[in-house]
Nucleic acid binder design. Structure first.
Lengths: 142, 142
DNA sequence: AGACGATGGTTGGGACCCCAACTATGTTAT
DNA sequence: ATAACATAGTTGGGGTCCCAACCATCGTCT
């Protein structure tokens, strides 16, 4: 198979790596009956109690409209609670419920195992620099 | 904003970087009226004349069913031609038409500009190792 | 030849995503 | 006070993706 310039271009390899990693985490989180997309969402809410949906969408790199069904699902399953603010009745405050914290704990365990595998592939020596580059790409591609 | 463990985990940063890069390339390729997903597809067909859809889907990291509408669209717009094989009348042979080669040239120019920006962010010194790590992740996550 | 299993491609259903338009609420300016 | 504008969230439409089921063709085994 001839990949031409794709073989040594960053964009293509970035995509392939990300999809492989996502796929692997997806299988892992499926074992505990959760969708992988829920993990980042739940973590960010847990770490930022009372966050609004729009703030959450920015932190998560998603459009706010993408979050509507996700949050709806988390609320329906009792993992997140959603209250209108008093001062501004347009916005919601999101919080993780005790049940949500439990789920998050399992998911975090999953993620840690997943991370260990990736760390092994990356190698401890390069890990820090690798992540720095990823962060720069995310921040500066604009 | 508190990202908790997400901040230093590979998976999350990989996703953010990939999506930023994809988004940037998407804007670029939109200027010439093409969808970014067409680029890898067209390149692989051009580099592997007569490839089948299933082979293409593997090279591309997609399910073969995902390619049905993509190839259909490329054929409809005259960028790719599709012929049944004689020896095996189940499979198609895909080839890029002259019009397709033209489009591919524009897309490649786009991609080169895009790559230059990313190279600038990564830094020439780390580029090679960075790509090696991405390749290993794609290959070994299994 | 006929049956069975493998393979290439398509179809249908569901998940997740973005964008544009919309509703409801808040804020600012006159 | 009220009109104009801004912001939080939802809705609807379209794109891309995966998976499971399916159709047609091929190869093999008897």
């Amino acid at each position: 198979m001839n990949f031409g310039p794709l073989a040594y271009w960053v964009g293509f390899n970035l995509r392939m790596a990300q999809e492989a990693a996502f796929e692997a985490f997806s299988r892992r989180s499926q074992e505990i009956g959760e969708s992988p997309g829920r993990f980042a969402t739940l973590t960010i809410i847990a770490r930022n109690p009372g966050i609004s949906q729009t703030e959450l969408s920015h932190a998560n790199g998603r459009d706010k409209s993408s979050l509507t069904p996700v949050v709806e699902d988390l609320v329906r399953r009792g993992l997140v609670e959603r209250k209108r603010m008093r001062e501004d009745r347009r916005t919601y405050r999101l919080n993780v419920t005790p049940a949500g914290k439990k789920t998050l704990t399992s998911l975090t365990r999953c993620a840690r195992r997943h991370e260990r595998v990736m760390d092994g592939i990356i190698g401890q020596r390069d890990r820090k620099r690798f992540i720095q580059i990823l962060k720069r790409l995310a921040a500066e591609m604009e």
